[in-house]
């Protein structure tokens, strides 16, 4: 049996009518398979064209890049669900830190941070806990600190809402919090050098 060409099959899908082509398709499993493949390809293209990124998504990707790009972070582990956009109260940080996050879509959270000596050069460790205002542990997520001078430090927030960053150089940082429930929070803080031994 002479098969019809792929060009003819695509012509059929593109609305053309070629004498005898449809009759051949009905009789030939090989050509039907190829025809089916092209139908699936067009369906795939429809899938692609149904999707797009809106401005808010692109903005979040920009923010992510500004904070975490372009250098890969040693020991970086991504985690958590991300980003639905929300407001964040700026928090000043020095020594023992307490800040609160409000207007957060998954409900209000409190963030407690403690900065302590790390025992290595002038760096410090940052320990913290994320809780709800009712005192429940904020479960899961990621905490990151990044700065132009010192790079980025990233760690997971565990199921008790606790996180630990070690070897953090004193300085000004932009903090990012991804929390379970899908929000990303940004705030600026400074970590002083006087906590280091």
């Amino acid at each position: 049996m002479d098969h019809i060409t792929e060009q003819t099959i695509v012509d059929l899908i593109g609305g053309g009518e070629i004498a005898g082509a449809r009759e051949h398709l009905a009789a030939c499993a090989r050509c039907r398979k190829l025809h089916r493949r092209w139908i699936e390809r067009m369906e795939s293209l429809r899938d692609l064209h149904r999707e797009s990124l809106d401005e808010a998504e692109l903005h979040r990707l920009r923010v992510m890049y500004r904070q975490l790009g372009p250098q890969p972070v040693e020991g970086f582990r991504w985690a958590a669900r991300l980003v639905r956009g929300s407001a964040m109260q700026p928090t000043a940080v020095r020594g023992v830190v307490s800040g609160s996050i409000t207007e957060y879509e998954a409900g209000p959270y409190n963030l407690l941070m403690r900065v302590g000596p790390a025992g290595r050069g002038s760096t410090v460790s940052v320990h913290g806990q994320l809780t709800t205002t009712r005192g429940d542990a904020g479960s899961g997520g990621t905490m990151a600190l990044s700065s132009a001078d010192s790079g980025a430090y990233v760690c997971d927030i565990d199921r008790f809402g606790e996180f630990h960053l070690k070897g953090v150089s004193p300085g000004r940082y932009r903090a990012l919090l991804w929390v379970d429930g899908g929000a990303i929070e940004l705030f600026d803080l400074s970590i002083g050098g006087d906590e280091a031994r």
């Binding site: 899938d47 990124l53 692109l58 990707l61 920009r62 372009p70």
Partner: peptide, 22 residues
């Protein structure tokens, strides 16, 4: 992107975000 070109990063996502979503 590796040089720190934020617009290139955005272009990647304009170009391939629909693919990832699909």
């Amino acid at each position: 992107c590796l040089r720190g070109d934020e617009e290139a990063w955005v272009a990647v996502w304009q170009r391939y975000g629909p693919l990832v979503k699909a």
